[in-house]
């Protein structure tokens, strides 16, 4: 029981101090591994691989995995709820303040600076994903221009984009994900 509460406490701290996306929780997990020996760094790598290859936010997936590995289903629920509890508390407070101050011109001014910046951050993430998925950047470094393009991936990209854009009513993203998974299995991606 004491160990269980300790796990929840560690995850509560992670949720409170990890700022940014799911990858921001990794340093905290590393610390848990070193401090308590709940899992080895090798196991952490496996957990990260599974969390990246399953649906859902990576940080939440990792919490569920770590919790389950220690205490089964109660551990999975305990660790995950502890991870999101600080978010719920902090964000509800900020949201209530935001609703009240949103009408102020100065707050609108600050947000008018934030919105285009967020577009820039997202574009930066999208370009990183594109480079990894559709091109071989290491081939370019080796001077091998021929294999720079992942032709098969680019072809699938074009086909999926056409299937998504051409219909009059844009399909739900779920259909695209399912179609992409099927294409991946059929053509051995």
């Amino acid at each position: 029981m004491k160990e269980f509460l300790l796990l929840c406490w560690e995850y509560f701290k992670t949720g409170l101090f990890a700022i940014g996306g799911g990858y921001a929780t990794i340093p905290f997990l590393r610390e848990m591994s070193v401090k308590y020996g709940w899992f080895t760094l090798d196991q952490l790598t496996t957990m990260l691989a599974v969390s990246e290859s399953t649906p859902g936010p990576i940080g939440v997936n990792m919490a569920t995995y770590v919790g389950y590995s220690q205490f089964g289903i109660p551990g999975a629920i305990g660790a995950t709820l502890s991870l999101v509890a600080p978010s719920i508390i902090v964000i509800c407070i900020i949201a209530s303040v935001l609703e009240r101050f949103k009408q102020l011109k100065v707050v609108q001014g600050i947000f008018s600076g934030l919105r285009p910046a967020v577009c820039g951050f997202i574009l930066s993430a999208v370009i990183s994903i594109f480079l990894v998925s559709l091109f071989r950047t290491d081939a370019l470094g080796a001077g091998d221009f021929g294999s720079f393009f992942k032709w098969k991936s680019i072809l699938l990209f074009a086909a999926l984009l056409a299937g998504y854009r051409l219909p009059k009513k844009t399909p739900h993203p779920i259909f695209l994900i399912v179609a992409a998974a099927c294409a991946g299995m059929i053509f051995s991606f």
Partner: peptide, 16 residues
């Protein structure tokens, strides 16, 4: 294989 396909699907969604 499925994840390889999904990765390209995610690219399309993010592009849009």
């Amino acid at each position: 294989h499925a994840l390889g396909g999904i990765q390209i699907g995610v690219c399309v969604l993010l592009f849009e």
